[in-house]
Design a protein around this nucleic acid. Sequence first.
DNA 1: AGATAATAAAAGAACGTTCGTTTATTTTTG
DNA 2: CAAAAATAAACGAACGTTCTTTTATTATCT
Lengths: 198, 198
Amino acid sequence: MRLRDENKELAIREKALGMIVEEGFDGLSMHKLAKAAGVSPATIYIYFKDRDDLIMQIFETENTRMTEITLDGFSPEMHFEEGLRIQWLNRARYCLENPERMHFMEQIRYSPFHERLQGSSKSTFIHAMRTWAQNAIARGELVPLPMEVYWSVAFAPLYQLVKFHMSRHGLPGSKKFTLDEPIMNQTLELVIKALTPQ
Amino acid sequence: MRLRDENKELAIREKALGMIVEEGFDGLSMHKLAKAAGVSPATIYIYFKDRDDLIMQIFETENTRMTEITLDGFSPEMHFEEGLRIQWLNRARYCLENPERMHFMEQIRYSPFHERLQGSSKSTFIHAMRTWAQNAIARGELVPLPMEVYWSVAFAPLYQLVKFHMSRHGLPGSKKFTLDEPIMNQTLELVIKALTPQ
DNA sequence: AGATAATAAAAGAACGTTCGTTTATTTTTG
DNA sequence: CAAAAATAAACGAACGTTCTTTTATTATCT
């Protein structure tokens, strides 16, 4: 028996992620990937069923990592403002410290892959978010809203800021935009103002 | 002299857009596209320099259409709330009436293509938006903010709602979400609350 | 302990297919 | 009939995947 070389699988995963980010899904070919990972094409098929399985598995791994970071230090019993602030910090941290992985996730999210993956993702995360929101509403800390409305106002602005931050050019006619803590807090205050009663 | 058949070019463009939406960028092959459009592969190269040029041109066309719809009935001199409401209606209209085209635009936006296209897009649109925001700030109708912060709060929630609307499954554990006018108005009110002084 | 059988990892070459694109030719029409 | 559109056929290259062989490692047996 010969043991699997974990470094090989890791190299394949990382290079694949990088290739997708830099060249898109067209850019990921098994031959080029094998060469980049220092591996034979056939070796990839020891670790992954096929090209789709490779992409799916990378997504699952990355999704898990993102979820863990997002929920770090968070609890559904938290007060609304505290919980939202922690979530924003966590999500921003993930995005800014892992720009390449973030890019990959976004590319998946807006590709036909995402529909296929929708069902497989864990709902514990969504459940935590939901009970947290419901608690906040019950306490009168949050305006009663459909989940989707609440979510759109609470988090979409943050991800748009991140997208501005990651794009090389800012808005045409602007300087390059950098998402720092003051900017984030300023935006967060607006969102809190929108979602808080009175 | 034989004239070009406009229907041919149109068929190529539409089928290509559809293929990208349904199968991603991998899914767009020139042979399959030719067959789908009822045309010889070589014919495509009469209208488009190469595969990339085809995608770019479709994007440019679609971008122009989207911009026109977005600015329909809008003027930079408008009061903030009126302008924002019109923009929301226009953008929502485009998204909901052209889900396939919207999907295409998003897929481009989150792919490596987008970086290449960034510079080519017209800045008149951005300019109109900017002066409108500056007017509103000068009138005290809008909190003074960096353009990116303002943009993120003003429009990102709408696009997130659209994304919920377009995804087949809602949030796990929810019913399918439908973006109707009451929901849109409710969200818009929150955004206005966030961006309006006091 | 040393030889060897067993087994899975890994590699390289090859599979048939499909890719994007071009060439040579025919068809259409001003 | 000239000229451009349109095509069928073909190009080499690259694709995803598999087949066959080699290599490395563990377990077993003497």
